[in-house]
Design a binder for these strands. Structure first.
Length: 272
DNA sequence: ATGCCCCCGTCCCGGGGA
């Protein structure tokens, strides 16, 4: 099974590019972020007419996540679990008791072909420090708690999406220029690293420990032409998924098309 | 030091993105 993740920066503005990529038999499951589409406006018919099952959770203007799959999509969950029952005070991930549930459409989880997959659009967090950065870190704590619960199921799990975290300096064309940014700050990197420490593997680094592999290039200042990229789109695999990992790659093709997303797909293949 | 570019909404700007 081939599972991909792609921040498309508006599913409607990118519909032809996305459907073209899917029609090229690039993957079996696509985890989509930044659909920017309310559920009633999601182009569901286009996906189903092309033979794709689709699940989506959106809001007006911003955010929004979806999953397209050749196989049936089962047991859909459209957000991280709510407070407070699932989040006991004193949890090592941090004190998040008593906070309001997240109203932003950034998370969608489902079972496909026996694999539990989540499409994740993690908050950007800029400017940092500030309330948006606090929201990012809080969101990462809640994701970690869910990630622990998923490990305990002992299912193969893939957490895929736009994490808005540049894990290491090698994942950035200009680490000095990005110092202090919410995507590189030590708190963001530490929260990302905790996901690895509890048992998930960064699929790309599992197979390519040292190379430069970008997944995002800004629209501005000729970033794509200069290869001024960063690696912020990730596939995190539970041990049961890692055992089956056969291949991982980033497909730079869609980033070079006319009117592209600023992100390009990352893809992995699991043995049957 | 700042903006470059792109998308959305009911909209010819401002917010958000990364």
């Amino acid at each position: 099974m081939r599972i991909a993740s792609w921040n498309v920066n508006s599913v409607k503005a990118r519909l032809d590019i996305v459907m073209g990529w899917l029609e090229g038999d690039a993957c079996d499951v696509l985890l989509i972020q930044e659909t920017k589409s309310q559920d009633e406006n999601f182009p569901e018919d286009i996906f189903t007419a092309a033979g794709w099952n689709v699940a989506f959770h959106g809001q007006k203007s911003y955010n929004g996540v979806a999953i397209a799959s050749r196989l049936p999509i089962e047991d859909v969950m459209t957000r991280l679990p709510e407070y407070p029952a699932e989040y006991p005070a004193g949890h090592p991930a941090g004190d998040i008791s008593g906070k309001e549930p997240d109203e932003q459409a950034r998370y969608l989880e489902a079972t496909i072909g026996g694999v539990r997959v989540a499409t994740i659009y993690l908050p950007n967090g800029n400017p940092a420090p500030g309330p948006k950065f606090d929201y990012k870190l809080d969101w990462m704590r809640r994701l970690e708690i869910r990630a622990v619960a998923l490990l305990e199921t002992e299912m193969p799990v893939i957490l895929g999406g736009d994490f808005n975290v540049i894990p290491d300096d090698i994942d950035c064309y200009d680490p000095a220029g990005w110092a202090g940014d919410a995507l590189t700050r030590p708190e963001s990197r530490a929260a990302f690293r905790r996901l690895l420490n509890i048992g998930y593997s960064d699929a790309l680094r599992a197979l390519y420990p040292t190379g430069v592999h970008y997944s995002y290039w800004d629209y501005q200042a000729g970033a794509w032409q200069r290869d001024n990229g960063v690696r912020i789109d990730h596939l995190l695999l539970s041990p049961e998924a890692l055992d089956r990992l056969e291949d991982v790659s980033i497909d730079r093709g869609p980033r070079g098309l006319e009117k592209p997303s600023d992100h390009t797909p990352i893809l992995c293949q699991l043995r049957a």
